[in-house]
Design a protein around this nucleic acid. Structure first.
Length: 628
RNA sequence: GCCCACAUAGCUCAGCCGGCAGAGCACUUCCUUGGUAAGGAAGAGGUCAUGGGUUCGAAUCCCAUUGUGGGCUCCA
């Protein structure tokens, strides 16, 4: 069973890094708190700089001042510095419009030009509470009351509170700030969005205004440029432009794969299948529609039902499978397993449905229907470390196909986990030594495992520096083995429990493809490109020879399209460039006569007079190398 | 699910203070047969997301529904 981390929250940056063996990076919080979904404009800056943070938080104060001036009754939430800027949450009498944002910006500029100093004031707790209550700032009152409660719980006296003032504006704030408003650099307000007070759906919806501030105009311009660049790489836009997939309202959250997208899909699938077969995997396929009894047995009915599509069939509740694992156990149990049969590696490109809330769907990276390159590996305890080593090798190889550098985290037993402590400790020790043996560097995330297994999660940073969670490897000693009563017969004839490794390397094919598209900006490496070669006959009389060459290339397994339209060669090149085809092959009189080709690469480089056979051999070799 | 915005030709978008549905690209046909990122002309293409309402009249105003987008973790 996979529980992919819900990607909206990685709220554990307060946890201390756990001491661990050699090669372990201690709690690398900055890296961990980055969102791991990353729509196009969620570009992360490479770490926040302290002076910038002061400026950003100060800008939030100035923004609050401006909003309060425009909406005197506004209530303030919180206004922290974030990755690329800042935000402040407000409760306002009406929704903000783009015009409002412009007005707020204008007032902010005035305040910055006035260069008001930020003045820190300390107030005894009771006075502070009276003050914010008199201002009718109920959210601030709540913050103070929470602080008081926390102090009481810790047996400490009521804390002294601090306020920061600039001009006529005063805000409860821990600080620190820049010296004066004039120190705030070039800024831009970006967006207004709804945000629940304290992120809880049961609390009021506030209006969050996002802004960005930088030390120089240059930095601001670069940031805005990067946002634009990210938009161009957005896989939803490129998916349409490159004719890979589309979405339709008859099935929200599920992609329709066009022929080119399906080529890409199959290439990835074939490569993974080939890798798995080399590593002793056997492929299975299990039903999508399953009686709810199975989910009761697996525990999903209790823990995961809200995310499952449930159907009523002849008075029985069935569900579309949200995970593959329980069904794999039926195949395991289909015969008596010997210790000699293990490891048993069962892979499945499983078609899954999860009922994600409508508001969180997002292109290919957050969908309701997807395919996992899933596998369950049943091992004896003495085989676990080796098998994890094998999996890490598989991750390294396959990520190498795309030039991606995997990073590893090790997530340990969460609160409320099932299974006894001794089993957990055993599993964690085994994973840890497997990681050490594999010589990988990893970060420990305490208490971040699934409720049934400690796990290794694998992340990458894409070309724009965004972090994505990709593969996962989970060592399950409890869930499948115990609940589904899995056994093998050991060398003494006694039944024993196997360990079930749950793992996915691409994760979901949909999501992986979305990430690849953004990482490469649509210019996919030759080996995965849906169209590897665009054959461009200069005139009609070159079209038949082009077909002949295309057949030769296809014979070597290459994906080739011939442009037989009557447009000019320049236009055909332009089209192929726009489609980001890696290789364009141009045929005119000279080439046809000599049985050669003029080869133009996506990067603009050219090579003339390449013999057809050479071309076929070289491109086939290049594609087979599976390299960037 | 919740807040806000958006939905017009295959794509990108204009029209939206109510009064004949538009452009560029793509597509079709014709001319053109070319040398490394757009040759020319003509044509076809729309239930303005869906349903309801206001109005003499709705792409345009109002309501609902569906879908899409930005968010809903950062604790003074």
């Amino acid at each position: 069973m996979f529980v992919f981390r819900r990607q909206t929250a990685m709220a554990d940056q307060q946890r201390p890094g756990e001491a661990a063996g050699p090669g372990v990076i201690e709690g690398d919080d900055l890296a961990l708190e980055a969102p791991d979904r990353g729509s196009a404009d969620e570009l992360l800056d490479a770490g926040a700089h302290a002076p910038l943070d002061l400026m950003r938080h100060s800008a939030a104060h100035v923004m609050a001042e401006a909003v309060l001036a425009l909406f005197p009754g506004a209530r303030l939430g919180i206004g922290p510095a974030v990755a690329d800027g800042f935000y402040y949450d407000f409760e306002l009498p009406r929704p903000l419009t783009p015009d409002d944002l412009a007005a707020v910006e204008e007032r902010m500029r005035t305040s910055i030009a006035a260069d008001h100093p930020f003045i820190r004031r300390e107030l005894p707790f009771d006075e502070a509470r009276t003050l914010v209550a008199a201002d009718d700032q109920s959210f601030k009152v709540e913050i103070l009351d929470d602080l008081a409660a926390k102090a009481a719980a810790a047996g400490e006296p009521l804390p002294v509170t601090t306020f920061y003032e600039h001009g006529a504006f005063r805000d409860l704030c821990r600080g620190p700030h820049v010296e004066s408003t004039g120190r705030i650099g070039p800024f831009r307000l970006l967006a207004v969005a709804g945000a629940y007070w304290r992120g809880q759906e049961s609390r009021p919806m506030l209006q969050r205004v996002y802004g960005t501030v930088w030390e120089s105009q240059e930095d601001l311009d670069r940031f805005l440029w990067r946002r634009e660049e990210a938009k161009k790489r957005d896989h939803r836009r490129l998916g349409v432009q490159l004719d890979l997939f589309s979405f339709h309202d008859v099935s929200p959250g599920s992609a329709f794969w066009h022929p080119k997208g399906q080529r890409l899909w199959r290439t990835l699938e074939t490569a993974m299948r080939e890798l798995q077969e080399r590593h002793g995997y056997e492929e299975i396929s299990t039903p999508i529609l399953v009686n709810h009894r199975l989910w009761e047995q697996s525990g999903h009915w209790d823990h995961y039902r809200d995310n499952m599509f449930v159907l009523d069939i002849e008075d029985q509740a069935y569900s579309l499978k949200p995970m593959n694992c329980p069904e794999s156990t039926f195949i395991y149990r289909s015969k008596t397993r010997s210790y000699r049969d293990l490891p048993l590696r069962l892979s499945e490109f499983g078609r899954l449905h999860r009922n994600e809330r409508s508001g969180v769907l997002h292109g290919l990276t957050r969908v309701r229907h997807f395919v996992q390159d899933d596998a369950h590996v049943y091992v004896r305890p003495d085989q676990l470390a080796d098998e994890i080593g094998r999996l890490i090798a598989m991750v390294r190889e396959s990520y190498g196909w795309f030039g991606l550098q995997p990073r590893y985290t090790f997530a340990t037993k969460p609160d409320g986990a099932i299974g006894d402590d001794a089993l957990w400790e055993r599993a964690e020790t085994m994973i840890r030594s497997a990681l050490d043996d594999a010589g990988v560097t990893y970060t420990v995330k305490p208490k971040d495992g699934t409720f049934y297994a400690p796990k290794i999660d694998i992340y990458i940073d894409d070309a724009l520096g965004r972090e994505w969670q990709m593969a996962t490897i989970q060592a399950d000693l409890t869930m499948l083995p115990e609940r589904f009563d899995l056994t093998y017969i050991d060398e003494h004839g006694a039944p024993q429990r196997p360990i079930a490794l749950h793992r996915a390397i691409y994760g979901s094919l949909e999501r992986f493809i979305g990430i690849l598209i953004e990482h490469f900006g649509g210019a996919l490496p030759l080996w995965v490109a849906p169209v590897q070669v665009a054959l461009i006959p200069i005139a009609d009389r070159h079209a038949d020879p082009a077909d002949e060459l295309a057949a030769l290339l296809r014979g070597r397994g290459l994906r080739v399209d011939v442009d037989r339209t009557d447009s000019r060669m320049q236009n055909k090149i332009r089209l192929a460039q726009e489609q980001k085809v890696p290789v364009m092959v141009i045929l005119g009189d000279r080439e046809v006569e000599a049985r050669t080709a003029s080869v133009r690469r996506r990067d603009g480089s050219q090579e003339q007079g390449v013999a057809w056979d050479d071309l076929a051999a070289r491109l086939a070799e290049e594609a087979a190398a599976r390299a960037v």
